[in-house]
């Protein structure tokens, strides 16, 4: 074996080693696509945010014209964007609900009881459901004569004969969409938490049990602290998904009624592809603002997590 080592492609001095060429040609398709469709959009899109650029400019082959922070001040003073940003921030309410529920469900299906494989798989089915199918199904549930109103009447939370469409009511539409996000998300995070739970050594639980800890105490004093890395990952993922919410809105309400479900990325989409303007510059500026909010939220997330573990440790 050792003897063969010198045979491995000794480069002639000065020439580019053949293996480098091979390596780069194998990487080429992946890198080319990433550069064109992932890196370039981030860089060029950020640049567009500082320029005046519309579909008309694009059609006429004109290049973007620099206009400093003009787009940002336009976007910030647009009440529609403000509404959108506020709604996107409201949407963050789904994060704690989703994380607490997913962790609780994960603990539940992690018990050694018969049938758990079935429950885990069933809870994951909404995750593999397309948002457009979810929209079809949930708009039936939410309609005036839908199953949600029926269930609420059954529980006497709504008087007989009463009811309303949850998606066309300004007070409920955003929350109704959040429930769809919750429905499609809890199985996903459950699986991530399950992976975390199963990586906790059994000895730790057993040791705590021997010391007389109740299962409630074990959960709070052992499981939760040891799950911190998973919790961080999950809250990070769902926070970013929440601030970037767009698909759910597009398919369920289109931003209505009366902009009560209009989100920040909805504004980006509209600016870029709808109306008379097709204003790529302002759309990119709005997108950049959302991206920055996302970064800030991520940093806050890390901070909060570190602080809370500092207290416990």
């Amino acid at each position: 074996m050792k003897l063969a080592a010198p045979r491995v492609r000794v480069a002639r001095a000065g020439a580019i080693p053949r293996s480098w060429i091979v390596a780069y040609s194998l990487l080429f398709p992946a890198l080319l696509l990433l550069v064109v469709f992932t890196f370039y959009p981030v860089i060029y899109g950020s640049y567009l945010g500082f320029t005046h650029y519309t579909a008309i400019d694009f059609a006429h082959g004109r290049s973007p014209r620099w206009n400093d922070l003009h787009n940002f001040s336009r976007v910030f003073s647009d009440s529609l964007f403000q509404t959108g940003l506020i709604n996107s921030l409201k949407y963050l309410a789904v994060v704690p609900a989703l994380q607490v529920a997913s962790l609780a469900v994960a603990v539940l299906v992690n018990r050694k009881l018969p049938g758990m494989t079935f429950f885990r798989a069933s809870f994951y089915v909404p995750v593999i459901t397309s948002i457009s199918l979810a929209a079809v199904m949930w708009s039936w549930i939410y309609q005036r004569s839908g199953s949600l109103n029926w269930a609420l009447r059954l529980l006497h939370l709504l008087a007989g004969g009463q009811g309303f469409n949850w998606l066309t009511n300004t007070g409920t539409a955003l929350w109704a969409i959040m429930l769809v996000t919750f429905w499609r998300g809890f199985g996903y995070y459950m699986v991530l938490y399950l992976a975390g739970l199963q990586s906790i050594p059994k000895e730790i639980d057993e040791a705590a049990q021997l010391d007389g800890a109740s299962s409630w105490q074990i959960f709070w004093r052992v499981t939760v602290p040891l799950m911190k890395p998973t919790t961080l990952l999950c809250t990070l993922l769902s926070t970013l998904a929440a601030i970037r919410v767009l698909e759910e809105i597009l398919v369920l309400t289109g931003g209505g009624p009366l902009h009560s479900t209009y989100t920040a990325l909805m504004y980006v989409y509209h600016k870029a592809f709808q109306g008379f303007s097709f204003n790529f510059g302002e759309a990119s500026a709005a997108g950049l603002i959302v991206a920055v909010v996302g970064v800030i939220l991520s940093v806050l997330n890390f901070r909060l997590m570190r602080e809370s573990s500092g207290v416990k440790g």
């Binding site: 469709f37 992932t38 890196f39 370039y40 959009p41 981030v42 060029y44 899109g45 950020s46 567009l48 945010g49 970037r244 990325l265 980006v268 870029a272 790529f280 759309a283 990119s284 997108g287 950049l288 959302v290 991206a291 996302g294 970064v295």
Partner: peptide, 10 residues
């Protein structure tokens, strides 16, 4: 990487 505006440029 933030991907909010990728769809426009793409």
């Amino acid at each position: 990487l933030p991907s909010e505006i990728n769809f426009i440029v793409n």
